[in-house]
């Protein structure tokens, strides 16, 4: 059966016009248009470009949510097996449009996408995790060179074949780690790598060290006696029985629990869900992880304004940075709405 492909391009590559036509609204045309002709040749009998969706760069970027919806619903009508976006080369707005369409196609239609961009196109960093983006040259002079690997990758994806490494396939690494079995065990690979490093020969690390965000500390509290303080913890402090079933490792969720009527944590009302440290001492007295008792005393003594009526808890054990960032965004939003002035973050 022929693989059905829908192609997304901008007004320029559709031959509608340059910047003066950049407000062109989404339209769909049957069959291949512009660079689609080159893809058609590359696909031969195996795949067919059934439709091309065209959208102006300015219209797309200024009305992103609406434009994405329009483009996707046009694509949906053609029941594609795969979508190709661009190539956008180093055109920034076109790259972002390609990326946004690609991400939505993957999420909404659940089919693979191949895009093409120059590595410095802003669309790359924004969308490389969602779509396979073939590395292209800066300008459309590199069209033919871009089409070959894009078409090859598209066919592989549509056939459901296993993909090679980014270098082999020509796509920009998506920052995704994928397991596979190597030919030699890890210890042997380490010895080989060390010998090369000692000899000054070339070697390739299997994991380039990560780069982390730096968070600037917030300004100091002016008057702690009036401040509303919240407790947030990655040490897994939860009500007895772990009602939300927060995982002991690799947490996918956080919990929000009421501190109303609670002055002290004890084995009868609380426990830790954390699987990464000795839980014995935490379970004996969970104030060791979440200092409710001390804060209540300080609240009574007027040393702090008040203790926020909820605590938030998750398990910071093998929990991915992506999940941690999501929890933090959601928790911070609620704390802001509740007028919390400061947070004591406890970990273990």
């Amino acid at each position: 059966m022929t693989i059905r492909i829908v192609h997304f391009i901008n007004q320029f590559f559709a031959g509608i016009g340059g910047e003066e036509k950049a407000d062109h609204r989404p339209e769909v045309r049957e069959g291949a248009v512009g660079p689609g002709i080159a893809f058609k040749e590359a696909f031969g009998e195996e795949a067919e470009i059934v439709a091309t969706v065209v959208c102006g760069d300015s219209y797309f970027n200024e009305n992103m949510a609406a434009a994405v919806d329009e483009v996707i619903s046009m694509m949906e009508n053609y029941r594609p097996d795969l979508v190709i976006c661009g190539p956008a080369f180093n055109a920034g707005r076109y790259g972002i449009a390609c990326g946004a369409v690609a991400e939505t196609v993957v999420n909404r239609l659940g089919i693979p996408v191949v895009a093409g961009m120059y590595p410095e196109n802003p669309g790359v960093d924004m969308y490389k995790k969602s779509a396979y983006i073939i590395e292209t040259s800066k300008t459309a002079a590199g069209m033919r060179k871009a089409v070959t690997p894009m078409a090859r990758l598209a066919l592989k994806l549509a056939r459901g074949e296993e993909l090679g490494s980014p270098e082999e396939e020509g796509y920009i690494p998506r920052g995704i780690r994928k397991n596979q079995f190597a030919a030699e065990r890890g210890s042997k690979r380490a010895v080989e790598m060390l010998l090369k490093k000692l000899e000054g020969e070339e070697y390739t690390t299997e994991y380039p060290m990560p780069v982390f965000d730096r968070v600037a500390p917030a300004a100091a509290i002016k008057d702690i006696k009036k401040a509303k303080i919240a407790l947030v913890s990655s040490g897994g402090p939860v009500p007895k029985g772990n009602p939300d079933r927060i995982e002991s490792s690799s947490a996918t969720k956080f919990g929000k629990y009421s501190l109303q009527w609670l002055d002290d944590l004890n084995p009868g009302n609380s426990e830790t869900a954390h699987g990464g440290y000795d839980p014995v001492y935490a379970n004996e007295d969970l104030d060791r992880v979440l200092p409710v008792d001390v804060l209540r005393e300080m609240e009574k003594a007027g040393e702090i304004g008040s203790l926020h009526e909820y605590w938030y808890a998750t398990v910071g054990n093998g929990t991915s940075v992506a999940n941690a960032r999501r929890f933090a965004t959601e928790i911070a939003k609620e704390l802001n709405v509740a007028g919390v002035d400061a947070v004591i973050l406890t970990s273990t």
């Binding site: 995790k129 998506r174 920052g175 995704i176 780690r177 994928k178 397991n179 890890g186 690979r189 380490a190 790598m193 060390l194 490093k197 070697y203 690390t205 299997e206 994991y207 380039p208 060290m209 990560p210 780069v211 982390f212 690799s250 093998g318 991915s320 940075v321 992506a322 999940n323």
Partner: peptide, 30 residues
């Protein structure tokens, strides 16, 4: 590595530029 179930997060909790030769024994979150 603990790169998350989708493999998209940083795999380690700490980092040094001097760690330029690393053998990875896989993403435990897969």
């Amino acid at each position: 590595e603990y790169a998350g179930r989708d493999g998209a997060s940083q795999s380690l909790a700490d980092s040094t530029e001097k760690g330029d030769a690393v053998v990875s024994t896989g993403n435990s979150n897969e």
